Simulated scan of single mutants.
Amino acid sequence: MARAIASNALTVFVVLMLAVAGILAWGRSEYAGEGPLEEAICVVVPSGASLSRVSEDLLAQGAIDNAMVFRLGAEYSNRASQLKAGSFVVEPRASVDQILGAITSSGRSTCGTEINYRIGVATANMLVRELDPATQTYVELASFVPGVDPEPEGLSAILENPSTRYRVTLAEGVTSWQVVEELKQAPFLRGEIAEVPAEGALAPDSYELSRGSDRATLLTEMTERQAAILSDLWAARAPGLPLETPLEALTLASIVEKETGVADERPLVASVFKNRLEEGMRLQTDPTVIYGLTEGKAPLGRGLRQSELRRATPYNTYVITGLPPTPIANPGRESIAAALNPAESDYLFFVADGTGGHAFAETLAEHNRNVQRWREIEAQRANQ
Rank of each mutant, 00 (worst) to 15 (best):
S109Y: 06
A94E: 04
S176A: 08
E153K: 08
L155Y: 01
T110V: 04
E91H: 06
N8Y: 13
L283D: 01
P299F: 10
M222H: 07
D57P: 11
V89G: 07
E153L: 07
A134S: 09
Y347L: 05
G280H: 05
I41K: 05
E151R: 11
L18I: 13
G48A: 07
A25Y: 12
R215Q: 13
E244W: 10
G357P: 01
E378Y: 08
V168I: 13
S47F: 11
E259C: 04
A270V: 12
D346T: 14
A228R: 01
S52T: 11
A201E: 06
Q136N: 02
A382R: 14
E140G: 00
L283N: 02
Y117N: 00
G120I: 02
R225V: 08
S335Q: 01
S52G: 07
N341G: 09
A201N: 05
D346G: 15
F349P: 07
A25M: 11
P246G: 09
P204H: 09
A80E: 15
A122Q: 14
R373I: 14
A203R: 11
V12R: 10
V139Y: 02
S335A: 09
L219F: 06
D132M: 06
P197I: 03
W234D: 04
T294I: 13
P187W: 10
E257Y: 11
L189M: 02
V371P: 05
Q185V: 10
L58E: 06
S335W: 04
T104Y: 13
T313G: 11
S176W: 08
R276C: 04
S213H: 13
S231G: 14
E192F: 03
Q384S: 15
L72P: 06
G35M: 06
L58C: 06
D149L: 08
T326Y: 12
N368S: 03
A343V: 07
S109H: 04
E265T: 12
R369E: 00
R167W: 05
V12F: 13
E153I: 06
V121Y: 02
A263G: 13
G101E: 10
Q185D: 09
A298F: 15
A4Q: 12
L323E: 05
P152V: 09
A80G: 14
I255R: 04
